[in-house]
Amino acid sequence: MATPDAGGACVFEAIGLTKEYDYGTVQALRGVDIRIAPGEFVAIVGQSGSGKSTLLQMLGALDHPTAGELRYRGAPLSAHGDLASYRAHEIGFIFQAFHLLPTFTAIENVQIPMFETHRSTSERKQRAMELLKLVGLEDRLHHFPSKLSGGERQRVAIARSLANGASVLLADEPTGNLDSENATLVLDLIVRLRREQQFTLILVTHDMGIARQAGRVIEMKDGRVVADTLNSTSH
């Protein structure tokens, strides 16, 4: 198994990470051990039910592990006093179904996470404009999600995930709801932004074509890591 940066500081270190549902009748994660270094682009692959999305939830502190330990930058995440603050400032999420708020325009959706910062109203607006320009949507600022194409919606979601300057981007099947043209566009955008901004990218996918673009591929099956390989042909 690949263990990059084994001796140095990790962004994430999972030790025997276990997640059970329904009083132990469903075991989504069965003692996962992984280390992820800063700036890595990791693809987590596996069939449906393999535990890849559950692992992403644990990394994003959306749920608590049943057993084992998850460390973020050396410190146990369970000891983190304010997980909302962790999600707001350290992590950016991109969802398969975009999950934009339908009653807010593109620029407003990007501002939503910034309520948990000390930015003023005008600073939030300015930052959202910059981010939407970065994803090529400067002409769609005041469009509601219903007036945007799938690819545009996902680009708004990408801008939103970067709103608070996250150092880790967690993407759950970010191209799953897109046609091939938009999927390529969105993936290229994420890859380009990672290269420019040097954030750690952890992407869940079942598409091996997408996974091949990552620097490292973790394959999961039945809640366990069954392969962890470095990809020399990645971006």
Partner: peptide, 12 residues
């Protein structure tokens, strides 16, 4: 779903 998204993106 929206409230969960707000929690996921960092709202307290």
């Amino acid at each position: 779903q929206e409230i969960c998204v707000l929690l996921a993106i960092g709202w307290k």
